[in-house]
Design a protein around this nucleic acid. Structure first.
Lengths: 188, 188
DNA sequence: TTGAAAATGTCGTTTATACAACACATTGAA
DNA sequence: TTCAATGTGTTGTATAAACGACATTTTCAA
């Protein structure tokens, strides 16, 4: 998609930092991880960290976004319509993502993670809506994306709360008819 | 020993290059490995390779030296005398090293490898001899180191030629009395 | 044998990283 | 409280690495 030629040094260093953070995450909680810890693990200078990330929260955000995007298979959604199949896939991706997160220790940062997931969802929904609608309705599309992102994320929270008794696919499918008609309505 | 603070970038890059070379070595022969192959595998610029090594032979030499030195447990020999035990250990290290090499494909470069091993041996023997003798005999010590290095290396070749029927330890021990008296003689 | 493609080795310029030093905030124990 | 230790975020300077270009050399198929 993007013809970006990022400096290999940047790719390498970002990967080093992210991998080190993931490694540390599996050892201790987020609140106990310092920038020094990360840079020591990554064998880079501390100042270099700040060259790439604003602070440790910025790093967390970017890592989560990236991991989530991998789960969401970005390309797929950028080229497809927002239909039942897409919604189901997205929901499954989110629940998978949350399963993989629950292994790592991010206690106390659920809110941050929630916000990041929701923001990513919003972006994806908005893109898909833009593709199949006129640009004049821009504001309406944005709002629709917001509502959908909150809604779908909320559903994943509810699914977790129910101790994951039902499979994600089944869980979301039961609600989709209502969502879809809402979407149709919103887009006139 | 050395209080060297090498720039971490240098350590990283050297390791990247060496690891990439090792990786490629297990895939194809030395003669088919180009500098471009290595730098591509290491994800560094080709010019950077020449910043660290003169050419691909220089890399080979340094890698072999390093691997050999690890096998030889440098520190140990730098702090001990050249006695039967040391000679046996060194011989075992060499045969171990050669076993590990035979897995990788360095066909056609046995001569180079042989020279590198012998040169390393010479350095080690010379250091050990220096430690237990007067400096006035410098030239004599150098020559002794040369003879010992060729001799021990030759023994390892002979050991390989004999299809490795005997254990290295046993093999070298049978000859040590003659070597040691030779050493004693040489050092008056 | 020849000529095109690939590999080698070098150079100058730009950019990313190392490092030390700094002011400031937070923490925790005396 | 106070003070010492630890973490944060920034800055200036030195240096390693990226990159593109170049002249040679090597390779190898036509």
């Amino acid at each position: 998609m993007n013809k970006v030629k990022t400096d290999p040094r940047i790719q390498r260093t970002r990967k080093l930092i992210m991998d080190s953070f993931m490694e540390l995450s599996s050892e201790k909680e987020f609140k106990d991880i310092t920038v020094k810890d990360i840079t020591t693990e990554a064998m880079i200078n501390r100042a270099t960290f700040y060259y790439h990330f604003e602070d440790i929260y910025d790093l967390l955000e970017k890592i989560l976004s990236e991991v989530l995007l991998v789960n969401l298979d970005c390309d797929y959604y950028q080229n497809n319509n927002l239909n039942e199949k897409a919604l189901v896939n997205i929901f499954i991706a989110i629940t998978n993502f949350q399963k993989s997160l629950s292994n790592r220790c991010h206690r106390g940062y659920e809110d941050t993670i929630a916000r990041i997931i929701r923001e990513q969802l919003e972006i994806i929904f908005y893109r898909m809506l833009l593709k199949q609608n006129k640009k004049e309705e821009d504001e309406a599309l944005k709002i629709t994306a917001v509502i959908l992102s909150w809604g779908i994320y909320g559903a994943s929270v509810e699914w977790r709360r129910n101790s994951k008794k039902i499979e994600p696919e089944e869980f979301i499918k039961s609600a989709i008819p209502y969502i879809m008609s809402g979407v149709d309505f919103g887009l006139a």
